[in-house]
């Protein structure tokens, strides 16, 4: 895009600057729109599974429900508890929301369409997702209230635990791709299995990793059945109990942006990203971003489906799953995958 602005007669620095800003807007604005729509979709899917109608009043089929909700919270009063640590209290939702948007910089949307094509793309995603925990901890602490604090403790323990196994799962992918660059990982999946299936998920050795990544993703984003941080029967509303109006909305949007990011990561790392699932020329006529969009949507449906059907985990079960099941299994798969590649590439 830099060249485009340069062709208007701008200097390289200015065109780079404008191109980057434009790129950020081109990613962030559609993302915000998708977050608004995906909240609607989530509610509709949930309602359908509970044999209800879901939002159906605002706009045709209730499509404008999220915007109405947004307007509503915008007009509400922001209440800051008098005993809270004010600066941190206001900073926390901003951190959550910003971090949820930042990781999208390295998600390849189409061939060549990526905001930051950096060498350490996947590590960047890990680094950013490890920052996400601060929004929650700071909110819990600065609210100066019991339930948010309990919730913040739970959230941070949960996110750190699952990040460990996510790290090992990603190492399996990186060993296969031979690069941390997100574009490189997507291109490495082209015709990966049997010469025509695009995606590491089709690889029998990596399929269990794909499933584990999906489940860890649910735990990492604190979605049901791992939504212990917002367990309403025990903790009121968790770390966001004291938040109201826009600061609450930022959490709400950030949470869904994180869920979308996890879906996008699932699609990009295991199911070919913007590549069509099968390496067959006519399928490439459909633009890459549409494939990515379809895959994200499928994963989001799975997230909603699980939310609507699976009961909430107990906290010790959650920790057991993370440390005693996922961690050893993912470690075993790192050994298996690297052993298999060593055997394939170098012989015995």
């Amino acid at each position: 895009m830099t060249q485009l602005f340069q062709s208007f007669g701008l200097s390289f620095e200015w065109s780079w600057f404008i191109a980057t800003i434009a790129g950020i807007l081109l990613i962030a604005l559609p993302l915000m729109l998708s977050v608004a729509m995906i909240i609607y979709v989530d509610r509709k899917i949930w309602a359908a599974m509970a044999l209800r109608r879901g939002p159906n009043v605002v706009g045709p089929l209730g499509l404008l429900q999220s915007f109405a909700d947004g307007l509503k919270v915008f007009l509400q009063e922001t209440i800051i508890p008098s005993a809270s640590s004010k600066a941190l209290f206001l900073l926390a939702p901003i951190i959550t929301f910003t971090v949820a948007l930042m990781a999208w910089a390295v998600i390849p949307i189409n061939s060549g369409a990526i905001l930051a094509d950096i060498n350490v793309g996947l590590l960047y995603v890990l680094a950013i997702s490890s920052l996400g925990v601060y929004g929650t901890i700071i909110a819990g602490w600065s609210s100066n209230s019991k339930y948010p604090f309990f919730s913040a403790m739970r959230a941070s323990a949960q996110m750190i635990s699952y990040e460990v196994s996510i790290g090992f799962i990603l190492i399996c992918v990186v060993i296969y791709a031979g690069t941390f660059n997100m574009n490189g990982i997507v291109m490495g999946q082209k015709a990966h299995i049997l010469g025509f299936l695009n995606g590491y998920g089709f690889n029998p050795l990596l399929f269990p990793m794909a499933v584990m990544f999906l489940i860890s993703g649910m735990a990492e984003t604190q979605r049901a059945p791992f939504d212990l941080t917002e367990a309403e029967s025990e903790l009121v509303a968790g770390y966001q109990t004291e938040y109201s109006s826009m600061s609450f909305a930022l959490y709400w949007l950030g949470e869904y942006a994180n869920v979308l990011l996890m879906c996008a990561l699932n699609a990009t790392l295991f199911w070919g990203g913007w590549l069509p699932p099968v390496d067959w020329a006519p399928l490439y006529w459909i633009p890459g971003w549409l494939w990515l969009f379809i895959k994200i949507f499928v994963f989001f449906f799975i997230f909603s489906w699980v939310k609507a059907t699976v009961p909430r985990y107990r906290y010790d079960q959650l920790m057991r799953l993370g440390w005693k099941v996922f961690l050893p299994v993912s470690l075993l798969f790192v050994v298996l995958v690297s052993g298999w590649l060593m055997f394939m590439r170098n012989g015995i």
Binding site: L123, A127, S130, I137, F149, M153, S156, I160, E163
Partner: peptide, 25 residues
């Protein structure tokens, strides 16, 4: 040194400092 930078964020910011925060809170 982008690799070291990312490791610094993942290890120190993402794990060590969270534990600090835990203890201090």
């Amino acid at each position: 040194a982008e690799f070291i930078a990312m490791l610094l964020v993942i290890v120190y910011v993402g794990a060590v400092a969270v534990l600090f925060l835990f203890v201090v809170m």
